[in-house]
Design a protein around this nucleic acid. Structure first.
Lengths: 213, 213
DNA sequence: TTTCCATACGGGAAAAACCCCGTGTCGGTT
DNA sequence: AACCGACACGGGGTTTTTCCCGTATGGAAA
C-alpha cells in the first residue's frame, strides 16, 4: 500500500507541481493539499483517513509552519511532519524540531534526496540530512550561542535607542542616566556584539534581530 | 510542434517538479533547467536550440532574475522571458519589466493560470495578470516615487561602505578619493535620505533597501 | 567578612564625524 | 563665449564618538 502524503505550502505552483512529482515516485500518494495551516485544519476535519506524512512549508501566511507543526503534534501525533523550507536558518530549524517535526528539507535539495528522505522517515521515523545541508552540531552550538548572548532590559533599551539618530547625550536623558553611564552600556554592548563603532553595533543588532528596522 | 521551455530557479525541488508539471501540459517541452543566471549562461552555450520561453525566478543567489533577464534581452532577444516570483513587490516587478521580461507570475498562482499565461505569451507575446494580483497603475505610480531618489554608482558605492565599520578615511582610501570628497558624498546622501547622522544613513538605506544587511 | 559582580558615575583626551567656508576641472547647454 | 551641473578637493572648526584612567554602592556568593 502506498504511503499517504499531505502537502502544505502557500505557493500553488509549488504545491501542485510537488504533488505531481510525489505521485510520480509511485510508492507515494498525495491525498491532501493545503495552502496554510488553517486551510489544513479544515481539510483534515472532512477527511476520514489522515496522511502518514505531511510536508509543511515553514514560511506561510495566516498560520506558519511552526504553528502548524505544533497543532499537528498535539492533535494528530501519529502523523509525521517534515519541514520544507528555502532557508537553512538555524533558528527556524530549531523551532521546527521543537514543534515536533521529524525531518527538515531544504527546497533546493534534489528530488532524489526528497525520495530518500521520505523512505527513511517511513522506515526509521525520522530523517537527518547528515549528507549535506544541515549540521546538527552547528545548530546546537548556535543555539547555545544565542543563549549566551543575553541582554538586560536596560541594555536592550539602550540598543534600541542607539539604533536611531539620537546622540548618546540624548539617549542618557531619555533613559534618565548620566552620560558616562550610557557610555558604559556602549562599551559592554560593543564587547558582547564584537563591534567597534556605533554603526557596527546597529548593523549587528539588526543581523541578530535584537532590534527591528 | 511543442513550445520549448527553459527554467531557471535555485530551488531544485521546485525546478524539477515544475518541469514535470510543464511537461504534463503536453504542448510544452522543458528543454533546459538551470539553478541561476550563471548556470543558465553556461548551459545555453552548449545548446544548439534555444527555448522559446524562459521562466526565471527573481530571487536567486549568484546571478539574480533581473541580471539574468538583462543578459537574455541583450544576448538572446528572441527568447521571451517570464518572471516567476513569490513576492509581488512593486519595485522588483518594475525592475524585471525594465530588464525586458514580458510577463510576471506569482508562485502562488494556480497551475491553470500558468498554462493560460504561457498560451497567451505564445499568441500575443506578452502576458498581463489583469485578473488579480498585479496592479500596473500602482506599479507605475510607485515607479515615479522611486525615481525621485536616484543615486549615482559612486554614491551607491559610498553608501555600501558607509554601512560598515570603516571610517570615512578608510572609505576614502577604498574609493581612491580624498577625504574631503567622501565628506561631500556624505553630505549629499544626508540630504537625499533626509538624515543627520551616519547611523541614520545606514538605517534609512536599509529601510529603502539601497543596501543589504 | 570578604570577594565578586552588576550598576551608576567622573575627568580627560584622541579620533571620528559633522558642517561650514572656499577652489578648480570637465563636459554639455544656451 | 558664458553658464551650469556634476565631480574632486582643501582648510578650519565644533560636536560626537570612542576609549582610557578611575570611584562608589548594593546585593549575592564564597
Amino acid at each position: 500500500m502506498k504511503t499517504k502524503i499531505g502537502l502544505v505550502d502557500d505557493h500553488q505552483l509549488f504545491l501542485k507541481s510537488l504533488g505531481l512529482m510525489l505521485d510520480s515516485f509511485n510508492s507515494y500518494d498525495v491525498i491532501l493539499e493545503a495552502t496554510n495551516g488553517k486551510d489544513l485544519q479544515e481539510k483534515i476535519k472532512g477527511k476520514k483517513e489522515l496522511p502518514d506524512i505531511i510536508l509543511v512549508d515553514v514560511n506561510m501566511p495566516v498560520m506558519d509552519g511552526v504553528e502548524t507543526t505544533q497543532w499537528l503534534s498535539e492533535n494528530h501525533p501519529e502523523v509525521k511532519v517534515v519541514a520544507l523550507s528555502m532557508n537553512a536558518d538555524d533558528h527556524t530549524i530549531i523551532s521546527m524540531f521543537k514543534a515536533g517535526c521529524c525531518g527538515y528539507l531544504l527546497k533546493d535539495t534534489h528530488p532524489n534526496e526528497l525520495e530518500r528522505a521520505l523512505d527513511e522517515i517511513n522506515k526509521r521515523g525520522f530523517y537527518n540530512a547528515d549528507a549535506g545541508n544541515i549540521n546538527f552540531r552547528k545548530i546546537l552550538f548556535h543555539a547555545d550561542e544565542k543563549n549566551t548572548l543575553q541582554l538586560s532590559e536596560k541594555e536592550k533599551h539602550f540598543l534600541n535607542l542607539a539604533c536611531s539618530e539620537l546622540t548618546y547625550k540624548q539617549i542618557a536623558t531619555e533613559m534618565n542616566l548620566a552620560e558616562r553611564t550610557v557610555d558604559g552600556y556602549r562599551e559592554t554592548l560593543f564587547k558582547k556584539l564584537n563591534v567597534q563603532s556605533r554603526v557596527g553595533l546597529c548593523l549587528e543588532a539588526l543581523r541578530q534581530e535584537l532590534v527591528k528596522l
